[in-house]
Amino acid sequence: MMRPGFLPLGVMLAAFAALPVAAEQAAPVAAQSEAAGKIWPSAAEQVSYAALQSLPDWRGIWLPMPGAPKPEIPRLIGKYKTLYDEIQALIKSGDPEAQLKVERRASACEPPGMPGVMTQPYDIEFLFTPGRVTMIQEAYMQVRRIFTDGRPLPEDPDPTYNGFSVGHWEGSTLVVTTVGLREGGIMGRWGISHSDKVKITERIHLDPANKDVLVVENTFEDPLALAAPWHSTYLFSRERAQDQLEFICAQNDRNPISDKGEVGFIDAAH
């Protein structure tokens, strides 16, 4: 029996998903003690799927497509600018030996992390469940969990590849805030890296002129790496006739990256 004055959790969930939130509302941050052990609506025992019906149709897979506006040159500072200048010099040299040193990953199977997970030359797909949006990137089968159940951002998250994301719907636009990313991740082109204090805000929506185009508008803020917010846009085109395929990078990775950052090639003799 429901106590008078309390709404069933399912009804509250439905209200959450459908409720328009004021534009540019900053995602709240929770103290660790407050967030620890709490059951948030996306995993609560009581659930309603009804609110999903009012969300936009993002089904199908989304292929990266050209045509997005070219981003401005980021106003990098400190060691982040130093690295960018170094990488750009390697690229502009045209020297094949130098260009082999552009990559800085430990393994060619190491995923890029956010936001590189959005710019792989493979498709993405979205799953909506109550209080949560899940994005799957085909390359390496990377997963982003975007909690839309009202939870705050963690105050002191462990840095991870894809970070911690919360989101809310402003009409048919999903606004996502991501923190908790690893120091040195790549923000866009080679050499544009961020600190572990970066905050990424994405506004994700269908193109009003073409519902088969998905637009992701990014704002990067980083007190250690950027003198001013930096913006970029990604575009995707919908494909409804295909599904994502499995992608296990460890199956046959024959391109080791040396400790000098050079990409290798294991030939047939090995």
């Binding site: 292929l63 990266p64 050209p66 690229i91 260009q99 552009v102 990559e103 060619a108 199977c109 890029p112 590189g116 710019t119 792989q120 030359p121 493979y122 498709d123 085909e138 390359a139 390496y140 790549i186 866009g188 082109r189 080679w190 494909e239 295909q242 395929l245 990078c249 990775d253 391109n255 990256i257 990409v263």
Partner: peptide
């Protein structure tokens, strides 16, 4: 999947991050 040609152009120029593996 599906956009190898775009990826190849990108990696040839080494200027755009449309690279998954190397």
């Amino acid at each position: 999947m599906r956009i190898k040609s775009v990826a190849m152009l990108a990696v040839a120029a080494l200027a755009v991050p449309a690279i998954a593996h190397h």
